[in-house]
Design a protein around this nucleic acid. Structure first.
Lengths: 127, 127
DNA sequence: GACAGTAGGTACCTAGAGGAAAGCGGCATG
DNA sequence: CATGCCGCTTTCCTCTAGGTACCTACTGTC
């Protein structure tokens, strides 16, 4: 039996169609990795490490594996000595570019956010 | 003294200009809240709770406070019995709409992600 | 023989986010 | 008199993401 509600049926998890993409692309650490590879091209492991200074090698590996599995990043192993591995963004990853662009566009509003925070805090001085 | 590097100076935290916006808008639970308010208009606390079924009241309160402080959501208290509180998206929050739209657009690629995962897993059967 | 450099793997540990459950205030309704 | 509604708040507890530190194989170089 199907029950119709005023607000339409509610999806099981959360009625928010963009969440899957957000989980994929904007979970912790994935954004700077994808953005870097998209903006500056292929990188070796240590190059990424040096660019995203605060990431630990363990987590960098985890995220790169995940992004590779998701088809957003490609990994190329060169059997040299010392070994060399290059990470690059795939076509699928590159298709995120307009998305990154619209986020970058919105960042002009960060000043308004700052002001809103100041107003909010000023209105509640002693919590 | 300013040192020029080949890849330009590296920002202190992470050389990724979109991270601030991502932290603001796409941290855990904020996305479905903002998306819901943007898509379906003002909601009461319990309405949000019922729509985003898996969120706990504690976290919902936390996120709403944070979004209110950031100027993305407005809170209106009606001193009735029982009390009524309405949350709505602000103009600043509404300005995120194109961003949400570009994410929704990209979600057509989720199928490719699924296929990439299958390929990846198929190529590594026993870990 | 020691050390460096690369791309990680692994074991251990901690901090903090988030879940569960209960309470509160004020009134209305049974 | 109890119960329920609403919008939280508080306390307690768990769980896991992530950090630290150390390890590997392989070779060249001092």
């Amino acid at each position: 039996m199907i029950v119709m509600e005023t607000t339409a049926d509610i999806a099981p998890e959360q009625a928010c169609p963009i969440s899957p993409v957000v989980d994929l692309v904007f979970s912790r650490w994935t954004t700077p990795i994808l953005w870097t590879l998209n903006e500056y091209g292929r990188h070796r492991f240590v190059e990424l490490e040096r660019r995203i200074t605060t990431i630990s090698p363990k987590v960098l590996t985890q995220r790169l594996r995940q992004l590779e599995r998701d088809g957003l990043v490609s990994r190329t192993y060169h059997a040299e000595v010392p070994p060399r591995v290059e990470y690059a963004i795939t076509d699928l990853g590159r298709s995120l570019a307009p998305l990154f662009a619209s986020i970058a566009d919105w960042s002009v509003n960060l000043g308004k956010v700052d002001r809103a925070r100041q107003d909010y805090d000023a209105a509640r001085p002693t919590g």
